[in-house]
């Protein structure tokens, strides 16, 4: 296996008595799209900020390309591009000027042609001379990506890149991340509090809860199709009938007229058919993917 592009060993950070990150270790290898999953306050941003030298860890070590980060921060940051939380820029400057400033701060000679290439890549050509305060949230987010990309880093750190975007923006961002990984060979660390977002872009993922690592591994292994939580809402309670059947084995919860099954999504039509045959009036079936439910699932 290749040298990890990021290696975190026993990282901890405490904010005034609150353990934000607790003995966290993981590695990201070149070519990975590494998903960071966790609720707000789980420690995703804190970890990412520590990776960028914005926050200093209380304990633990960070290695980038095998080199200890603390001693080589300036050198190693040349290999990293990042968006942390909101894409905040100088609103009174144009998109192009923001990009030029951030490009100049990489201390490398970045030609204007590269500036325009990146603007093209994120779809901001034509609007580059407009002041950033006139940009939509999505445009700002794309400008943020342009800033992260302009110096052609190997590693991209994207903290909640879809925050505040409309559904189309979210889809575009997803495509962009996939293309950066697939077509440009970037290694990406992306965080989200939404499981399906991680699921759709990441190759590996890490689940953080209260600063602790709960699970880590390839997405395909962690998000087991058999672990889907399916809520079935019926007109009247059908719990007894279900309990007495084979379906009772996968019933994990029941409250009022709503039953929750842990099952493979492919079997949902079969369950529906059986219920109808039993004369149960099915009002609604929804499969849940939210992180909260995922936590319920993996902690049960």
């Amino acid at each position: 296996m290749s040298t990890p592009i990021v290696e975190i060993r026993n990282l901890s950070k405490n904010f005034k008595g609150r353990q934000a990150v607790d003995d966290l270790s993981f590695s990201i290898h070149p070519g990975d799209v590494y998903g960071f999953l966790g609720q707000n306050g789980a420690g995703k941003s804190t970890t990412m900020r520590m990776l960028l030298g914005l926050i200093f860890p209380d304990a633990g070590q960070i290695f980038i390309n095998g080199e200890e980060f603390g001693n080589n921060r300036r050198y190693l940051l040349k290999h990293i591009g990042a968006i942390i939380e909101r894409p905040d820029m100088y609103g009174y400057l144009s998109g192009r000027d923001n990009l030029r400033i951030m490009a100049a701060l990489t201390r490398e000679r970045i030609p204007d042609s590269r500036i325009y290439d990146v603007l093209e890549q994120v779809g901001l050509r034509g609007r580059e001379k407009d002041k950033v305060k006139t940009y939509s949230q999505g445009m700002k987010q794309r400008l943020g990506i342009a800033i992260a990309l302009v110096h052609q880093p190997d590693l991209l750190i994207l903290d909640e890149p879809t925050n505040g975007l409309d559904p189309q923006g979210i889809a575009e961002m997803r495509q962009l991340i996939l293309s950066l990984s697939r077509d440009h060979g970037k290694t990406v660390l992306v965080s989200s509090h939404l499981l399906h977002e991680i699921e759709q872009v990441a190759t590996r993922m890490l689940v953080l809860h209260k600063g602790k690592k709960i699970a880590e591994g390839p997405v395909t292994e962690l998000i087991n199709p058999d672990d889907m939580l399916v809520d079935v809402v019926t007109r009247a309670s059908a719990e007894e009938r279900v309990r007495s059947s084979v379906w009772g084995e996968i019933l994990v919860a029941s409250a009022g007229n709503t039953m929750t099954f842990k099952m493979n999504a492919a079997r949902v039509p079969e369950l529906n058919k059986w219920l109808v045959e039993q004369g149960v009036a099915v009002m609604e079936i929804r499969s849940k993917h939210s992180l909260e439910d995922y936590f319920i699932a993996i902690t049960q």
Binding site: R49, R73, L77, D88, M102, L105, T106, R107
Partner: peptide
């Protein structure tokens, strides 16, 4: 306040 400080500090300047 603008949020640009973290952007600046993720650039390779000390």
């Amino acid at each position: 306040n603008l949020g640009t400080l973290r952007l600046l500090l993720t650039r390779p300047i000390s």
